[in-house]
Nucleic acid binder design. Structure first.
Lengths: 329, 329
DNA sequence: TTGTACGCGTTATCAG
DNA sequence: CTGATAACGCGTACAA
């Protein structure tokens, strides 16, 4: 009654062992540790595995409580956004060589979906999380028994590691371009204030204005998306009796929306634009753009690095890494 | 000696059952099938599960050979490319409500990495694959014991389901715009011939030319990326003694590269451009673009749909779905 | 160095 | 409708 019953899904370690003429444990050691196995049997096992097209069953391995993490959960707000696509690539780039795979899900910027994804991933026994939080809640992240790293956005009050862009410096630098060009009526077109990125960029905007002796004019500040789409917000700004002579756009979506709005109007004297995020075709645009460039791939890499550091047992206080930006004037 | 020993990673079904005062099997049924359980116990179990923050362990579930698929592997060539990011979103959109998660990896368009990813995913016991093949090899896909659906590209000779864009019609339609505008010296700037997409688009290009009574001029055909980067190829075309008066670009990367090359030269009389793939800022470009628009999200959805159809036991001959394109003139 | 028993968490089976 | 038991495939502990 030697285990010769074929299961539906491919060969098992037992099969490999039988074929190589060794015990299962020798086979196991040969294929995972490579320790304490004679060279001879080592080779025989590996040949057997290869000829059977055998792969260790990760599900079975993960079942053991004391195993190393082989899976982490990644929650982004919208995987279709090129920005987050690159973030994922950075994460995978770092984790893949360490034999850790990722489970990815899009929250659509809703807390409910974020909660559900996190719960789902817990079911998969992920060893940790990288999350782009959709809002300010963090109770669902606190209860987890595994490390969590926030990416791109921070949550006030959450005791979690985070990797961020230097939003403040980026916004300041961009707005400074505008003030130094002599502009005074400068608008802010941007993100929802419910995410830290939006708040920080607005803060940088205000700071740069004050630094230049300009009092921020609230009627020139449009934050989304609660009020309207970026395109509508841009139209509203341009349609004012006294339109801004310069605009700071808080991310690439808003920059592009503004450009679309401008194109609709065909104004003789379009506003000067400075904004956050670079994009592929920025230098092909019909108007001059000053952009805050940064590297989402690096952001992902660093987040993954931080997570692995925790997985390896680091117990330091929460770390916040702030990545530098580069202004393309 | 009732199993009260805490394992590191959260509560188990046993804990839930104990707390609810029922047997493990009742708890199991209550939480997965919801069949053959009295309403009373049903509620008790669910309350217990909720109060413990319990989640079924998917790893343990997947261990059984006869279980439904909960995981599929997705292999794309480059996850950072917005096109494939959208493809993934379509896939997730279809699979997520069906409680199937995806494991995603980028092959970087190399066969070796593709092989490795496939092998890795087999270790995770995925119930099927969606693959954007990196080349013409398919032996590693044939040996798999689970269904495989190709997305975006086909492999000649492979007996596999596939979802494609109608490359032929797309290329024809785009090139027709150029010929009907009276152009004769029309160049092809594009993809490697090692992928079916490249071949098919070139075929469409040639067809449309012949249809217009123009003999394709091989010296105006630049295929990549073996020879050079898209940007260099574009420069080469524009730098000819007799540059083309019109160019068909075989995908968005090449379209954008051509635009960059054009911008460097600042020609008085730039070529007319028609190309494959739409992109965000296409209508903001300084020159007129005629583009073949199509929907990568839909492509992903359909691929996932096909895969689920197989997972449910379909044994029909390989299906090839060709999605329609839309020309933006 | 090698092999044997047992447990990881869940579900199918089958007896109550 | 309910629950005890035996797998599922692998790795640790221990015995040989």
């Amino acid at each position: 009654m030697t285990g010769s019953r074929r299961r539906s899904g491919g060969p098992t370690l037992r099969d490999v062992a039988e074929r190589a003429g060794v015990g299962v444990m020798t086979a196991s050691r040969a294929l995972s540790n490579a320790s304490n196995v004679s060279e001879d049997k080592m080779r025989r096992v590996q040949e057997a595995a290869a000829s059977l097209g055998y792969r260790l069953n990760e599900n079975a391995r993960s079942l053991r409580p004391d195993q190393r993490t082989r899976l982490v959960g990644v929650v982004v707000t919208n995987a279709a956004n090129p920005y987050y696509a690159q973030l994922q690539v950075g994460i995978e780039e770092y984790l893949s060589p360490r034999h850790i795979r990722t489970l990815v899900g899009s929250s659509g910027d809703t807390l409910e979906r974020e909660r559900q994804l996190v719960a789902d991933f817990v079911g998969w026994n992920v060893g940790g999380f990288i999350v782009v939080p959709s809002g300010a809640e963090h109770d669902h992240l606190d209860r987890l028994q595994v490390p969590v790293v926030l990416a791109s956005r921070r949550i006030p009050g959450a005791e979690l590691d985070a990797v961020l862009i230097d939003d403040l410096a980026g916004a300041r630098a961009a707005v400074r371009v505008l003030t130094e060009a002599g502009h005074h009526r400068i608008a802010f077109l941007g993100l929802s204030m419910s995410v830290s990125t939006g708040q920080r960029r607005l803060e940088g905007f205000r700071g740069a204005l004050r630094e230049a002796g300009i009092e921020p004019n609230d009627s020139l500040i449009r934050v989304g998306p609660s009020t309207s789409t970026p395109l509508d917000a841009a139209r509203g700004l341009l349609g004012r009796r006294e339109p801004p002579t310069a605009v700071f756009t808080a991310n690439n979506r808003n920059t592009i929306a503004l450009l679309h709005a401008l194109r609709e109007r065909d104004d003789l004297d379009p506003p000067r634009i400075a904004g956050f995020d670079n994009f592929d075709t920025a230098d092909l645009m019909p108007v001059r753009l000053s952009l805050v460039d940064h590297d989402p791939v690096e952001l992902g890499r660093r987040a993954a690095e931080l997570l692995v550091w925790r997985l390896n047992g680091a117990t330091d206080d929460p770390a916040v890494v702030e990545l530098p930006i580069r202004l393309i004037p």
